[in-house]
Simulated scan of single mutants.
Amino acid sequence: MTVNSTIFWNNKGGTGKTSLAFQAITTFAHLNQSKRILVIDVCPQANLSELLLGGLEGNGSDNLLKVQGRTPRATVGGYFQSRLPSPYSFGSIPVGDYLVVPSQYNSLIPGNIVLLAGDPLLELQANSMSTLANNQIPGTDTWVKIVSWLKDFISETKSAYDYIFTDANPSFSIYTQVAMAAANRVVLPVMADDSSRRAIQNAFSLIYGLKLPSEIYAQHMFATRMDQGRLPLPKAHLVVKNRITQYMGSASGYRAILDSIDRDIDSIIRENPDLITFGSLDEGVLEIRDFQTTGVVAFARGTPFFALKPGKRSVGGRRVAIDGNQIRDRNIEIVKLAMLLK
């Protein structure tokens, strides 16, 4: 049976991707406590890892440094470092050495989550990985070998996990391609601005080669190289319109952009149904309101919404009050998202 491996990604920053991923993944784990979940943070900033390990107020940064300081380095960068000496063969790497259990650092995180943490080393490793991917070796598709590094990791551990979730940064650099190649579903968070509309178009161009500006790019595009290497492309699973509170209301100019995003997605449903897992806008598009103060407190403290209690909390040395109704409303929305990840 194929393990569902879902990546949260958009090539535009500022869409709230990591905050959505944190709340959705932890809620999914909370709702499915019998399921074993692997979280992979393929981002140099490692924000998702820091949230899982405690957030600002829960020593998440210090805990992340401890994880990065282990021997071997218990991060995605540590695993990639182990691949560099023999990049085109997996060998016998003890993948479990690179994993941590966030609940051992942050008691609010469900115990069925295991983490391959993010690492700033990714930026330093990217040049070496790209060079290795473009080497010319007769009989070896070097690009496929490099972008399969996380697929190798998952293959080695797939019997241990029921679901895999990955957070990747907005770039489409080599390490993002490695993450994309290891996924079979993509969640695309967007906002109600025109740059987000273009970001959806760009995402489908980068992943699937749709509407390329010139055919000269076709031979180098991700989809072509995946096809040549007989690797399956992930399918778009959800488009999440995030932080839409300020865009609500029929008179809002932003509603026109939200509607245009729907038209673009509807066009993909009709013209490229093989690239998506859903058959209608109702199935594949979800709206999430802005998390507001509830989100600020939750992320500062590395707290899933289901574990957040009303009252005053310390955030950055200040006392911030959160309302029980806000917590309930935010949790209801995130539960809807989490249920669509099954």
Rank of each mutant, 00 (worst) to 15 (best):
K158N: 14
T18H: 14
A218V: 03
G60W: 12
Y79C: 03
F306E: 08
V285T: 12
A203H: 12
R263S: 12
G55P: 02
V187P: 02
A179E: 07
L38H: 09
K241D: 00
G209Y: 02
R319P: 00
R263C: 01
A300Y: 09
P170R: 05
R328F: 14
D152Y: 14
L188N: 15
I37E: 02
R197A: 12
T303Y: 07
L233E: 03
A183E: 12
I113T: 06
G77F: 09
S148P: 12
A160G: 06
K336M: 11
N112Q: 13
Y254Q: 14
M339A: 09
P138N: 12
R225G: 04
V144M: 07
S155R: 15
I322A: 07
F165M: 10
A192C: 09
R73P: 04
I276V: 15
V187W: 07
Q246V: 04
N11S: 07
V100P: 09
L337Y: 06
R318Y: 08
K235H: 11
N47L: 09
F80V: 13
G253V: 04
V296E: 15
A160N: 14
L275M: 08
D141I: 01
R301Y: 00
D62C: 02
M221A: 04
R197M: 08
T75A: 05
Y247P: 00
N134R: 11
A160Y: 03
P87F: 09
W9Q: 01
Y161H: 11
L308G: 04
I288K: 07
V67E: 02
R197F: 10
D227I: 03
N184L: 08
S205P: 04
N32G: 08
F299V: 11
P44C: 04
